Amino acid sequence: RRRVRAILPYTKVPDTDEISFLKGDMFIVHNELEDGWMWVTNLRTDEQGLIVEDLVEEVG
């Protein structure tokens, strides 16, 4: 499975499927959606939700 790491922190918009995260958080990518969004699991918090790919980098 594809893994990505947050390069910046992010605070979710209330009442959306987004998740908040810290710089350095690792995610497993489940689905890549339109307009650069990804459905992921945050490995630190075990939370699932949407993040935008501009805020993460690939992990080898």
Rank of each mutant, 00 (worst) to 15 (best):
54 D>V: 11
2 R>V: 07
33 L>E: 07
5 R>H: 06
36 G>Y: 04
55 L>W: 12
38 M>F: 09
40 V>A: 12
54 D>P: 07
14 P>T: 08
31 N>G: 12
12 K>H: 07
36 G>T: 04
1 R>C: 10
12 K>A: 15
45 T>P: 02
13 V>D: 09
5 R>P: 01
29 V>W: 02
55 L>V: 07
26 M>C: 10
58 E>S: 11
44 R>I: 04
46 D>R: 14
2 R>L: 07
4 V>E: 00
5 R>F: 07
24 G>I: 05
20 S>N: 08
16 T>F: 02
25 D>T: 02
9 P>N: 15
36 G>I: 03
25 D>F: 02
57 E>F: 06
23 K>M: 11
51 I>H: 01
42 N>G: 02
27 F>Y: 00
16 T>R: 05
54 D>C: 08
3 R>T: 14
57 E>T: 09
37 W>T: 09
4 V>Y: 08
11 T>G: 06
12 K>G: 11
55 L>P: 01
29 V>H: 02
11 T>P: 03
18 E>H: 05
54 D>H: 13
24 G>T: 03
28 I>P: 00
47 E>L: 07
31 N>R: 10
28 I>M: 11
36 G>A: 05
34 E>S: 13
46 D>H: 14
46 D>P: 01
13 V>L: 12
20 S>R: 02
26 M>V: 15
28 I>K: 06
36 G>L: 04
36 G>V: 03
41 T>A: 05
49 G>P: 00
39 W>P: 00
9 P>I: 05
37 W>Q: 08
54 D>A: 14
57 E>L: 07
16 T>K: 04
32 E>R: 11
60 G>K: 13
22 L>R: 11
36 G>S: 06
26 M>I: 14
37 W>V: 07
16 T>L: 03
25 D>W: 03
54 D>E: 12
33 L>W: 11
1 R>G: 13
26 M>Q: 09
24 G>P: 00
44 R>Q: 05
30 H>A: 05
20 S>W: 02
13 V>F: 10
1 R>I: 15
43 L>E: 12
56 V>Q: 03
24 G>E: 05
51 I>N: 00
24 G>V: 02
31 N>A: 14
10 Y>H: 12
44 R>P: 01
7 I>L: 12
8 L>Q: 15
6 A>T: 02
19 I>D: 00
15 D>E: 12
22 L>N: 11
42 N>E: 01
49 G>E: 01
17 D>P: 10
33 L>H: 09
1 R>Q: 15
31 N>L: 14
11 T>F: 09
36 G>C: 05
57 E>Y: 07
36 G>W: 03
59 V>S: 07
28 I>S: 07
22 L>V: 11
29 V>A: 02
49 G>T: 00
43 L>A: 05
11 T>S: 11
51 I>T: 03
44 R>L: 04
18 E>G: 04
58 E>I: 09
44 R>V: 04
33 L>V: 10
26 M>L: 15
27 F>H: 02
24 G>N: 08
54 D>R: 14
28 I>E: 13
42 N>D: 04
35 D>S: 11
29 V>D: 01
18 E>A: 05
14 P>E: 13
26 M>G: 04
55 L>A: 11
9 P>S: 13
53 E>K: 15
51 I>W: 01
16 T>N: 04
31 N>P: 01
11 T>H: 10
48 Q>G: 05
4 V>H: 03
48 Q>H: 12
7 I>P: 03
1 R>H: 15
24 G>A: 05
50 L>S: 08
17 D>W: 11
36 G>R: 09
21 F>A: 03
7 I>S: 06
6 A>S: 08
6 A>H: 01
3 R>V: 15
48 Q>F: 11
34 E>F: 11
51 I>E: 00
47 E>K: 07
9 P>H: 12
46 D>Y: 14
3 R>K: 12
35 D>E: 11
15 D>F: 13
30 H>I: 14
27 F>E: 00
7 I>E: 03
59 V>M: 13
32 E>H: 08
59 V>A: 12
43 L>K: 04
15 D>W: 10
23 K>V: 13
38 M>I: 11
56 V>Y: 03
20 S>L: 01
32 E>M: 13
26 M>N: 09
10 Y>S: 03
12 K>P: 08
19 I>F: 02
52 V>A: 15
33 L>R: 13
29 V>Q: 01
3 R>Y: 15
7 I>W: 06
7 I>V: 12
5 R>Q: 10
60 G>D: 14
2 R>C: 07
58 E>G: 08
27 F>D: 00
45 T>R: 02
59 V>D: 08
1 R>K: 15
14 P>R: 08
48 Q>W: 09
21 F>C: 07
43 L>I: 12
47 E>Y: 04
40 V>K: 00
55 L>K: 11
57 E>M: 09
41 T>V: 09
53 E>F: 11
20 S>M: 02
8 L>A: 14
56 V>S: 04
17 D>M: 14
40 V>G: 04
41 T>P: 00
23 K>H: 07
30 H>Y: 09
40 V>E: 00
44 R>E: 06
22 L>G: 06
26 M>P: 04
19 I>H: 01
5 R>Y: 08
42 N>H: 09
45 T>V: 03
43 L>V: 10
45 T>Y: 02
49 G>I: 01
55 L>T: 05
32 E>K: 12
12 K>C: 08
8 L>N: 10
37 W>L: 10
7 I>C: 06
40 V>M: 00
5 R>M: 11
11 T>Q: 12
41 T>N: 04
10 Y>W: 07
55 L>F: 15
8 L>T: 10
45 T>E: 02
28 I>R: 05
3 R>A: 07
29 V>L: 05
27 F>W: 01
55 L>H: 15
52 V>T: 14
2 R>Q: 06
41 T>E: 08
25 D>L: 03
59 V>G: 06
22 L>Y: 09
57 E>W: 05
60 G>Y: 15
37 W>G: 06
21 F>Q: 01
18 E>R: 05
2 R>S: 06
8 L>G: 14
56 V>E: 00
14 P>L: 08
34 E>L: 12
59 V>Q: 07
24 G>L: 04
47 E>F: 04
9 P>A: 14
46 D>I: 11
40 V>C: 06
8 L>I: 10
9 P>L: 05
6 A>Q: 01
59 V>C: 10
7 I>N: 06
42 N>C: 08
38 M>P: 00
28 I>G: 03
11 T>E: 12
38 M>Y: 09
41 T>L: 10
26 M>K: 06
44 R>M: 07
57 E>I: 10
14 P>I: 09
55 L>C: 08
16 T>Y: 02
45 T>F: 01
30 H>S: 06
8 L>Y: 13
60 G>L: 13
41 T>G: 03
29 V>K: 02
60 G>N: 14
24 G>K: 03
34 E>G: 15
21 F>S: 01
29 V>M: 04
54 D>F: 15
57 E>V: 11
12 K>T: 04
6 A>P: 01
30 H>G: 05
29 V>Y: 02
56 V>F: 04
48 Q>Y: 12
32 E>F: 07
25 D>I: 02
44 R>D: 05
4 V>D: 00
22 L>W: 11
33 L>F: 13
4 V>G: 02
30 H>P: 00
56 V>I: 11
27 F>P: 00
58 E>C: 07
31 N>Y: 15
36 G>M: 05
20 S>Y: 02
42 N>K: 07
10 Y>P: 03
36 G>K: 08
24 G>W: 07
21 F>K: 01
45 T>G: 03
26 M>H: 11
8 L>H: 12
52 V>L: 15
25 D>N: 00
8 L>P: 00
6 A>C: 04
12 K>W: 02
38 M>K: 04
31 N>W: 15
16 T>H: 03
31 N>D: 15
27 F>M: 12
13 V>K: 15
16 T>C: 04
6 A>I: 02
51 I>V: 13
1 R>W: 13
59 V>W: 12
56 V>H: 01
41 T>F: 06
23 K>R: 13
14 P>Y: 07
38 M>R: 04
17 D>V: 09
14 P>V: 09
36 G>N: 08
13 V>T: 15
25 D>H: 01
28 I>D: 12
34 E>I: 10
12 K>V: 03
19 I>T: 02
8 L>E: 11
25 D>V: 02
42 N>P: 01
44 R>N: 07
13 V>C: 10
35 D>M: 10
8 L>M: 14
33 L>C: 09
58 E>A: 11
16 T>D: 02
9 P>M: 08
43 L>Y: 06
43 L>M: 12
47 E>R: 06
53 E>D: 12
51 I>L: 09
31 N>Q: 14
50 L>D: 02
31 N>S: 15
